[in-house]
Design a protein around this nucleic acid. Structure first.
Length: 289
DNA sequence: ACAGGATCCTGGGGGC
DNA sequence: TGCCCCCAGGATCCTG
């Protein structure tokens, strides 16, 4: 499931493989991808050069030499690959661009939750970002913004961390991991966090993402980087996918629940602050605060 | 404002 | 072996 570390890894892999390369032809267009925009792909992409590859949240941004932008969201199972022609898997390919020196740019997506968008000029792109209303990048969060937004809501922490308008980049895996590192219960309400806990949560998010980027992200099932290499962070996960296994910190079994419609993994002993039914209080160990 | 459910989608795994 | 059902979740929409 591509989250920020996986998307960042793809971008870093693609950059040297793609920058300066020319699109010779469009071999396959993304009709099967439900949310892909409709464009005369051959007309807008043929003979264009890739100027730069970057990322905003989980979106991958290809800037072309005509100020056009090709955006890709990997969704659940998306893979973006640049490989010599004839390499790699051939099923579930939704868009293929032939590049110079017989390389191919390929978007592969088994479950088709991905998204492909093209913007002909910076104005259209800016409009798209406005509509998306994305929050800040995790490593560039203003402390005051963070404190205000988290303290100002009664939503639970799991739902908050998945909300891309609050903060971009977290998905189900790293939301669970960050909450475990911060020792905060996923059901705790934003408004019930102390300033110290709030700051600790932001640091935990940064630390979890930093470590995961270092390990090229987590390959649970389908994810691979831009050159086809798998990630390594799945070996370091503390709670995600470890239901009933002992917590590495305290030895108690990891619990699973469903929050914000997503499976949520946590250690009930290490992660305190589960809210009681009465509003405005939460349990901390055996005490009510 | 918020929670929860449905929707899109396919492959893997469990049960029979 | 084959069949059925459930589960996984990023984003979005709808309802209560």
């Amino acid at each position: 499931m591509p989250e920020l570390p996986e998307v960042e890894t793809v971008v870093r892999d693609l950059r040297p493989l793609l920058c300066g390369r020319t699109i010779l032809s469009v071999i396959k267009t993304p009709e099967a991808i439900r949310r892909a925009g409709k464009h005369p792909w051959e007309a807008v992409l043929k003979n264009r050069h890739f100027e730069s590859i970057s990322r905003r949240g989980k979106w991958i941004i290809h800037q072309l030499d005509n100020k056009g932008h090709l955006l890709i969201h990997l969704g659940m199972t998306g893979q973006l690959l640049v490989q010599p022609k004839g390499h790699g898997l051939t099923d579930h390919l939704h868009m293929i661009l032939a590049l110079d020196q017989t390389f191919e740019w390929k978007f592969r997506d088994i479950r088709r939750f991905g998204n492909i968008q093209y913007f002909a000029n910076p104005t259209d792109l800016a409009l798209f970002w406005t509509k998306q209303n994305l929050g800040p990048e995790p490593f560039m969060v203003d402390r005051h913004y963070w404190a205000t937004r988290v303290k100002g809501t009664s939503r639970n922490l799991k739902a908050l961390l998945l909300d891309q308008t609050l903060l971009v980049g977290l998905g189900n895996i790293y939301a669970d991991e960050a909450l475990h590192l911060a020792k905060l219960h996923p059901e705790m309400r934003g408004q019930n966090l102390t300033s110290k806990q709030n700051e600790c949560l932001l640091r935990a998010i940064e630390n979890v993402l930093t470590e995961s980027i270092k390990n090229r992200g987590s390959t649970i099932r389908d994810y691979v980087g831009g050159s086809g290499l798998k990630g390594g962070q799945q070996l370091n996960l503390q709670v995600y996918g470890r239901t009933d296994n002992p917590c590495f910190t305290c030895g108690n079994p990891i619990k699973r629940t469903v929050l914000a419609g997503r499976s949520t993994h946590f250690c009930p002993k290490c992660q305190l602050g589960q809210p009681r039914k009465s509003i405005g209080s939460y349990t901390k160990g055996d005490r009510t605060v």
